[in-house]
Design a protein around this nucleic acid. Structure first.
Length: 216
DNA sequence: AAAACGATACACT
DNA sequence: GTGTATCGTTTTT
């Protein structure tokens, strides 16, 4: 069954763990791909320094300020699209980022869209990879994912056992609101990357010369 | 300049 | 087969 808008009309922190084991489906002229969600991340609104909505409404993030259950698809790092499901309650500008999943239908089409994937589990392992496997781009930004019979839907699937849900800090969130355990994943899923306590995203560490000895 | 990242090359098992 | 370091490219601040 299609999850209704009311499912998403709650804080992202409540929706995120409840999304594990659910299935997002996108049907297009090319065919249909379905992904069972295994890793997600919650972003609350204006209170959350890690959220795109933290500094207010912009053209990029305006979908976050709209109706729950629609998708916020944004462009990042100059080349990737990532997908979120807008949450609530109301128009609070909260959302859940879809970080990883397992392709459960349409793997052949997903492989065409993800030519660099070297194994089935890499098809939708990572937020931009998952988005590519589903065939979503900025053209889908704002689409309603709660309409039964629609091209884009989130199905109830088989929700993950509460005992298998793990959580930890989000990646790359610095400053005041850092290290809120708002990243959720299903334990033991091969599509979930190994837990990184603090992703070393800093290329040039000022306190260390050069690990490879190629400096200056 | 940093960011809600992925592809690649290369190391290790 | 799996893990890890490095770097590309655009939007937003």
């Amino acid at each position: 069954m299609t999850l209704p808008g009311s499912f998403f009309d709650r804080p992202a922190l409540a929706v995120a763990p409840d999304l594990l084991g659910r299935v997002i489906v996108h049907g297009s002229e090319e065919g249909l791909v379905a992904v069972r969600l295994t890793e997600v991340e919650a972003y609350e609104g204006a209170d959350d320094p890690g959220s795109h909505a933290f500094r207010g409404r912009t053209r990029r993030n305006e979908v976050m300020f709209g109706a729950p259950g629609h998708v916020y698809v944004y462009f990042t790092y100059g080349m990737h699209w990532c997908t979120n499901l807008v949450c609530g309650p109301g128009q609070r500008a909260a959302a859940v980022l879809l970080r990883a999943g397992e392709v459960v239908e349409g793997a052949e089409l997903a492989a065409v869209r993800r030519p660099t994937a070297r194994s089935a589990r890499e098809l939708a392992r990572g937020p931009a990879r998952l988005t590519a496997a589903l065939g979503l781009t900025g053209a889908h930004n704002g689409a309603d994912a709660c309409r039964p019979g629609g091209r884009l839907q989130v199905l109830d699937g088989v929700p993950c056992e509460a005992s298998a849900v793990r959580s930890g800090p989000r990646t790359g969130v610095g400053g005041g609101g850092a290290s809120r355990p708002w990243r959720f994943w299903a334990d033991g899923e091969p599509t979930v990357s190994v837990y990184r306590p603090h992703a070393p995203r800093n290329r040039a560490r000022p306190d260390q010369p050069d690990a490879r000895g190629l400096g200056a």
